[in-house]
Amino acid sequence: MSDFDFDIIRRSWPLMREATWVSIQVFAWSLVLASFIGLLFALMRLSNVRALRWIAGIYVWIFRGLPALVILFFAFFWVGRVLDLTSFQAAILGLGVSSGAYKAEIIRAGILAVDNGQREASDALAMTRAQSMRRIILPQGIRVMIPNYVSNSTLLFKSTSLATVIGLNELTGKSRQLANSTFKPIEILTAAGVIYLVLTSVLVGAQVLLERRYAVKA
C-alpha cells in the first residue's frame, strides 16, 4: 500500500470525472427507455389480446437471453449503422432494450402481486381497466416492484461499463485506458471502484426513500 500512487489519481481525475459524467448520462437515459419499455411490455404481457402477449413474450425472451455486450455491439454496428447513431445513442438504445426486458418482468410481477380483490373492488366501483390500473393496481404494485427495480437499475448503471466496446468514453473504458497508459491499474481502478460505489450508493438511498414513500401506513 505504501507504493500506492495517489498522485496518478489526482492527475487522472479530470478525465475520470468527464467519463463519469458520460456514464451517468447514458445510465439516466437508458433507465428512461428501459422503464418505458418495461411498463409497455408488462402491460402487453398481461393483455387479453393473445398477439400482444406473444410479442411481449418474444421480446423478453430475446433481450433477457442475450448478453448486454452482444446487444450493444448490434446496437452500434448494425442498427446504429442504419440509423447513423453515435456510440452514445447506441449505448442508450442497447442498454435500454436490454434492461427493459428485465424491467418488464419486474413490473409484471409487481402488478400480479396485487390481490385480486382489489381488481374486483375497482370493477364494483365501475372503474375502467385503465382507471383501475392507474389508481388502484399500479400504486400498490410499485411497493412490490421497488427493491427489484432499484437492484436492476444498479446493475444497469454498472452495465454502462460495457459500452466501452463501442467506443464510448465512459468511466470503465477511460479508466482502463489510463491504467494501461500509465501502468498504474491498481490506483486507477481503485479510484473508478470508489466512484461506482458512491454512485450506486445514491441509488440505494433512492430505494430507501421510495420504500418510505410507498410504505403502508399503520
Binding site: 451517468i24 448520462q25 439516466a28 433507465l31 418505458f36 411498463l39 413490473i107 416492484m145 437499475s153 421510495l210
Partner: peptide, 13 residues
C-alpha cells in the same frame, strides 16, 4: 414509475 427516471435523466442532462 417512469416519472422518476425521466426526471433524473432530464436533471443530469
Amino acid at each position: 414509475m417512469i416519472a422518476i427516471p425521466v426526471a433524473f435523466a432530464l436533471a443530469v442532462t
